[in-house]
Design a protein around this nucleic acid. Structure first.
Lengths: 404, 404
DNA sequence: CGCCTTTTGTTCACGACTAGAGCATAATCA
DNA sequence: TGATTATGCTCTAGTCGTGAACAAAAGGCG
């Protein structure tokens, strides 16, 4: 992504325009974009013209006018690029179709039986029915680490709760040449938060996604870190809780064992694990809110564990903000805050990074899956391939026949 | 750093050439560089010509010839940019002068009395005597967190061992308009390791620097993360050791309390802390190597603590490699390795990231301080300011009178 | 010793890009 | 209705990198 010739400049500026339109959800006028991106009016004219011609953007009249000549609003083209996004949780999955600008329309929500085939074969069938000439990629959020041993190899998924080991999601989905972007749910929730949530404009942030257990991601420069093989953010498997309980990951004392709906149900002596108990956990949270002593005590214990670990992570990574998605919102409160501040180094206590609820809640992973597709598309390669495909009337793929 | 006009292209390519020369230590021929950077011969000709004219590079004849016309080797110019680098440890400091390409010449090594004034006033005097028209910045590595509350504000330093709080290093050094780059020693050791050590070419790596206690840095894309206020990498203040001993940072159970020369001496019942005991710790390590039971047991306990925490960090961040500098090299061995693997998630055990000794050892922080200066210099702003200064015969500074 | 081969440095015509100015356009305001 | 204002469009000027043609400086070889 380092331009060396003037042709690269044009490609880069095309992407700057598309990215700006996408990030603002198609709400800015062309004149505003021109100023924001510091382009000459003539340059913007040429750029937008090209993007309209290649069916990447379409302009609609602006609703409100000031004094001068009315300006237009660039937004998604009716035949423009589409991302398919999937959120696969331990107990159900959801598919949405998304356009440039970030509008996501949920098409299907269905439970699954907890086996890789039971989950991914129906998802694959549903996706294949949706793929068309507008599709630029499929993004899938899964509730476990996504591991890519070497670049080019198929990524594998493990979900300890469900006893999934080395699940070849790509094979099970059978999407052919359609680009597949697989990602961990917590990381994708963080990505969505960075683009359209509380993390907007935050240089360094920590996002924690609490569902059955705990996942997270460190956001740097608006992008979640991936690690060498794609499995960064497994903060739950650091021994920060001070106990020695065994964890399904193969070690013991893991922080994640103490945080999440599994931990809550375990503390209340209820059955947990295996991807079951989402509704039950919700009921317990409601009871805690309405004064049930035992439920409240369990919730506070979980909140304290979350706060302590969050404080330790803040010590280590110095984020400006901490956001919580999934059940995290329900854990916010005095118990969390006390444990959090107590875990902070004295140096950080005068101005502790705020801990706040995610703006996207449970929709984070799905929206992040969408963003991961558009992130791959809004690159010189991606956009040039689209233009090439539109010029020659072929499908958009990452393989062959496209200019490198 | 996003080019939009063709002039930015030239500036960017200038930097690509300078960066390549710097990173290879001035060992590549012009023809090699041209191929590596994928430039046309004509372009390279113009670029190098400009860089020589502005006294950034000088060409010397290549020692060995192949068949054709002999090529030249671009290297540092005799009147070219210089960085001053300082490594401030708890007990002594060192100053070196460095040129483009990375050659560092140590000028002075002196002990200090452990007070901010006792350390920084003499350093400031020494630096002011060295500053000249070639100076493009001063880099200082300090053995504690460097905190910048808001951009533009003077960074402050805390070193708990020495009871330093909010030390205004910039004021004490009084360097006037010379750009000052202050950094944590562990982070700078990681930076040096990424540029000229084992971390070369590693996308995601974890570096741990063990001195009196423990510091570290996560390397992403060849750059150490800094955090929101510059204090990322304080991994030692996560409660990963499983104990509850109080830490000078204000909390308890900190991993860093169990790792480093302070921990080693404490386990042996010897006096420790306050920036004293480096030599004593060295003697104990030698004793352990030569078979002393008590010393070996203490060393192994420290190594196990280091291994356990390193494993936890690898679980969380998924690096491809872990490097150890300072005393870390002495802690490598079976005790560390066992604790390390035991702390890894089962998923990571088939191919655990190697844990190896740093290539730069104790020189890491100093060389990292140098790299931090050149990192700031090898940017469009930095190089354009140098060219501007050389054209008008003025000093290089970050302030005023320079083109933005 | 002289000539051919090989590799590198230099020069220049060419195409591509953006900035910026001048002009056209389409609304609001008085 | 005409002045004002902000925006879109068109065209020229300046800059950049490419790539080909040419010059230069060595080694290889008879």
């Amino acid at each position: 992504m380092m331009p060396t010739v003037s042709g690269d400049l044009r490609a880069l500026n095309r992407i700057r325009v598309l990215r700006a339109v996408h990030d603002c959800g198609g709400s800015r006028t062309r004149a505003q974009l021109t100023r924001e991106l510091d382009l000459a009016r003539g340059t913007a004219s040429v750029l937008v013209g090209e993007l309209i011609e290649s069916e990447l953007l379409a302009e609609t009249p602006a609703a409100e006018h000031a004094r001068g000549r009315p300006t237009l609003v660039p937004g998604p083209h009716p035949r423009g690029p589409q991302a398919l996004a999937v959120d696969l949780r331990e107990d159900e999955w959801e598919i949405a179709v998304c356009e440039l600008g970030g509008r996501a329309t949920t098409l299907e929500v269905r439970p699954h039986d907890g086996t890789p085939e039971g989950a991914f074969l129906p998802i694959g069938a549903a996706l294949r029915a949706l793929v068309g000439p507008r599709t630029v990629g499929v993004g899938v959020a899964v509730a476990g680490p996504v591991r890519q041993a070497a670049p080019g190899e198929d990524p594998l998924v493990d979900i300890a709760h469900l006893r999934w080991r080395d699940v070849p999601v790509g094979e099970l989905l059978s999407l052919g040449a359609v680009p597949l972007h697989l990602g961990n749910d917590a990381r994708l929730a963080a990505l969505a938060e960075a683009r359209r949530g509380q993390m907007r404009g935050v240089e360094v942030g920590l996002h924690l996604h609490i569902a059955f257990d705990l996942g997270g991601s460190l956001l740097v420069g608006g992008r979640p870190l991936t690690g060498a093989s794609g499995t960064a953010g497994e903060f739950g498997h650091m021994p920060m809780a001070g106990d020695d309980e065994p964890c399904l990951c193969g070690t013991s004392g893991c922080w994640g064992v103490q945080v999440g709906s599994n931990a809550l149900l375990r503390r209340l002596g209820l059955p947990y694990g295996g991807g079951k108990g989402r509704a039950e956990a919700g009921r317990m949270l409601a009871r805690a809110r309405s004064g049930d002593r035992a439920a409240a005590e369990a919730l506070h214990a979980v909140a304290r564990a979350l706060g302590k670990g969050a404080g330790a992570l803040v010590n280590a990574h110095d984020p400006a903000l901490v956001t919580l998605s999934g059940f995290g919102e329900d854990l916010l409160g005095e118990a969390l805050r006390e444990a959090y501040v107590a875990a902070l180094m004295e140096m950080r206590r005068p101005a502790p990074p705020p801990v706040v609820a995610s703006a996207l809640g449970w929709r984070g992973p799905l929206l992040g899956a969408m963003e991961s597709v558009f992130d791959a598309f809004l690159t010189p390669n991606g956009v040039e391939r689209w233009r090439h495909a539109r010029m020659h009337g072929v499908m958009y793929t990452t393989s062959a026949s496209a200019p490198v």
